[in-house]
Computed example of a mutant assay.
Amino acid sequence: MNISLPDPLKQFVDGQIAQGRYSSVSEYIRELIRADEKRKAEEELETKLLEGLQSPKSALTAAEWSSIRKEALSRIATPRSRR
Rank of each mutant, 00 (worst) to 15 (best):
E31A: 12
L32T: 04
L32Q: 14
L32Y: 05
L32A: 07
R34A: 07
R34E: 12
R34C: 01
A35G: 07
A35E: 15
A35I: 02
D36Y: 04
D36T: 04
D36W: 02
K38Q: 12
R39A: 00
K40F: 00
A41W: 02
A41Q: 06
E42F: 00
E42N: 01
E43G: 00
E43W: 05
E43L: 07
E43I: 01
E44I: 02
E44V: 04
L45V: 02
L45Q: 08
E46F: 00
E46N: 13
T47K: 13
T47H: 11
K48E: 15
L49E: 15
L50W: 07
L50S: 12
E51F: 08
G52D: 11
L53I: 05
L53A: 07
Q54F: 08
Q54K: 13
Q54C: 03
Q54N: 14
P56S: 09
P56C: 03
P56W: 03
P56I: 10
P56V: 09
K57W: 08
A59I: 06
A59E: 14
L60C: 09
L60H: 12
T61C: 00
A63N: 03
A63Y: 06
E64C: 00
E64Y: 07
S66Y: 06
S66D: 08
S66Q: 10
S67E: 15
S67N: 12
K70G: 02
K70C: 01
E71Q: 15
A72M: 11
A72L: 10
